[in-house]
């Protein structure tokens, strides 16, 4: 059944992976350092940032989509860029959704190992920078699961991407919006089959990531 729409399915999977990869990359690039700094750094507005991030974790995807939509609509602030209904704008909406999650998860990962590691660092009389690196290195596996969570969120999200992406065939259609479409068409079994494909992709990504950490561990 899935074989009949081979070409289009591959294209959809391609768009899905591209979107999820870049949203994960950007939100981790922003969120991981912020999450570490919130726990370890001492700077003005730290608490406010933490509160904001944890509040934004509850941001409903559709609302995130709406905000991005309003910014990029024809008469919106960034309307002249003509980015609405492109993969780029889908990534922007995803980053808005996922970065707070990355920040919060990172900060809780770091805080858990806080006391014990600080003592070690002090014992070794490490510099501030090196202490931070110790924290990151020590928690690398937990931080990898933060990255995977971010990836999982972005690959499974449907509300925001269908709003700003428009679910356009051959252009912005991703797995989730394709599943929604097939459901609306009444092709429930086919929609379910697509859901299985999505799960399979997630599984492959997860296995790949755990292999990566294993190899690193044996290098140590």
């Amino acid at each position: 059944m899935l074989l009949t729409m081979d070409k289009e399915l591959i294209q959809i999977i391609g768009v899905t992976l591209k979107m999820s990869f870049f949203s994960t990359l950007i939100s981790c690039f922003l969120g991981l350092p912020l999450g570490v700094l919130i726990e370890r750094g001492r700077f003005w507005g730290r608490r406010t940032l933490k509160k904001t991030a944890s509040t934004l974790m509850g941001l409903p995807p559709v609302v995130a989509g709406l905000i991005v939509y309003m910014l990029f609509t024809k008469y919106g602030i960034f309307g002249s860029l003509g980015l609405l209904f492109t993969v780029e704008v889908m990534v922007i909406a995803q980053v808005l959704l996922i970065t707070p999650v990355v920040i919060c998860l990172t900060s809780s990962v770091i805080s858990v190992s806080g006391k014990h590691l600080s003592e070690t660092a002090r014992g070794l009389s490490l510099s501030k920078g090196k202490t931070l690196l110790l924290f990151v290195f020590h928690n690398r596996r937990a931080l990898l699961s933060v990255v995977l969570t971010a990836f999982g969120r972005s690959i499974a999200e449907v509300g925001a991407v269908s709003l700003v992406g428009g679910n356009i065939q051959w252009k912005t259609r991703v797995m989730t919006t394709a599943i929604l479409l097939e459901t609306n068409k009444g092709k429930f079994t086919f929609a379910l089959a697509l859901g299985m494909v999505l799960l399979l992709i997630s599984l492959i990504v997860n296995i790949g990531a755990s292999l990566l950490t294993k190899r690193r561990d044996s290098d140590d």
């Binding site: 609509t73 024809k74 209904f85 269908s162 356009i168 065939q169 252009k171 259609r173 479409l181 609306n184």
Partner: peptide, 18 residues
């Protein structure tokens, strides 16, 4: 030719935008 795969309202919004 933009195949939107969405409801009437969403398609009209898209036509208005594009």
């Amino acid at each position: 030719y933009i195949s939107a795969g969405q409801g009437m309202g969403a398609c009209l919004t898209m036509a208005n935008e594009q």
